[in-house]
């Protein structure tokens, strides 16, 4: 088990999730880890707006926002070099063609799985 607390402490994490209960769950987890949640946002438009108005180190994105997919947000994040983690019931299948390097955390997830994947995303320099 990785002790994520040290690595993730004080990181600002953007949450995009259309299901409030899940967003609250992630929020609680991040707070427990010492992170600072940004959001949650429930739509692509909301998330893109947040990218302009907020600073953050990491993003946890629900792949399927019900009416829309998260991909434009992921693309923008990749362009900016901000690491992100997709969360989806589809697992790695949720990744569009040509984006196989995007990481996906399969729903429903366990706390430890989410933490380990978040840790692997944080650049070593900033660790």
């Amino acid at each position: 088990m990785i002790d994520g607390d040290a690595v993730l402490a004080n990181k600002r994490v953007l949450i995009v999730e259309d299901e409030m209960l899940i967003a609250m769950l992630i929020e609680d987890m991040l707070v427990d880890l010492g992170c600072e949640p940004v959001g949650p946002y429930s739509s692509v438009a909301g998330a893109l707006g947040a990218m302009d108005s907020h600073r953050f180190d990491l993003a946890i994105l629900d792949a399927n926002l019900g009416r829309e997919m998260i991909y434009p947000v992921a693309e923008r994040l990749e362009q900016r070099g901000i690491p992100f983690l997709l969360v989806s019931g589809y697992g790695q299948q949720a990744v569009p063609a040509g984006r196989d390097h995007w990481r996906v955390c399969t729903k429903p997830f366990r706390r430890d799985d989410l933490v380990r994947m978040m840790v692997s995303l944080v650049p070593l320099t900033s660790q």
Partner: peptide, 20 residues
């Protein structure tokens, strides 16, 4: 696909409800 999504989401929601 939708069903899959919903089931997984629902389970996540249930976990979240339980936690909260």
């Amino acid at each position: 696909d939708e069903l899959n999504h919903r089931v997984k989401n629902m389970l996540t929601v249930v976990i979240s409800l339980a936690t909260n």
